[in-house]
Simulated scan of single mutants.
Amino acid sequence: MPDTLKTEDEQKKDALISVLLEHGVFKSENHQLYELTLNELEDVCRHYLQTD
């Protein structure tokens, strides 16, 4: 498989980051979204989507 293809986890992270950016979330606890793990992004996403 070519190195240029993204893994499934990377694609999920990109999708979650897009959702958070659409909701005006750019950071989480002094970390940029791209620095977070998939599990952390899912937690942040759950938190912000529940409070909308």
Rank of each mutant, 00 (worst) to 15 (best):
E22N: 14
S18F: 14
D3M: 14
T37R: 14
D52A: 15
E40V: 09
K13L: 06
C45L: 08
V44D: 01
S28D: 03
D9L: 13
V19H: 05
Q11P: 08
T4S: 15
D3V: 14
C45T: 15
S28T: 05
K13I: 02
V44M: 00
C45R: 08
L38F: 12
E10I: 01
Q32I: 03
E10M: 04
S18W: 06
L21E: 10
D9R: 13
L21R: 00
E35C: 03
N39Q: 14
Q32E: 06
K6V: 08
D52N: 10
E8Q: 11
Q50L: 08
S18P: 00
V44R: 07
L16H: 07
E40W: 02
V19Q: 10
Q11A: 15
T7R: 07
T37V: 09
L16Q: 04
T7P: 07
E29L: 00
E8W: 05
I17T: 04
Q50P: 09
K6H: 07
Q50M: 10
V44E: 08
D9C: 08
T7N: 01
L21K: 09
T37N: 08
H47G: 07
E22P: 05
V19L: 10
N39A: 14
F26K: 10
E42K: 11
A15V: 13
Q11G: 09
V19K: 00
T51A: 08
E29V: 02
E29Q: 04
Y48I: 05
H31S: 04
S18D: 09
Q32D: 05
S18T: 07
T51P: 04
L33H: 03
H47A: 12
K13P: 09
M1V: 03
H47E: 12
L20K: 01
A15C: 06
E22S: 15
K13Y: 01
F26P: 02
E22Q: 15
T7S: 14
T4Y: 13
L49W: 04
L38C: 14
G24K: 01
P2C: 07
L16D: 11
S18K: 14
C45N: 13
C45V: 00
L5T: 11
L36T: 03
E35H: 02
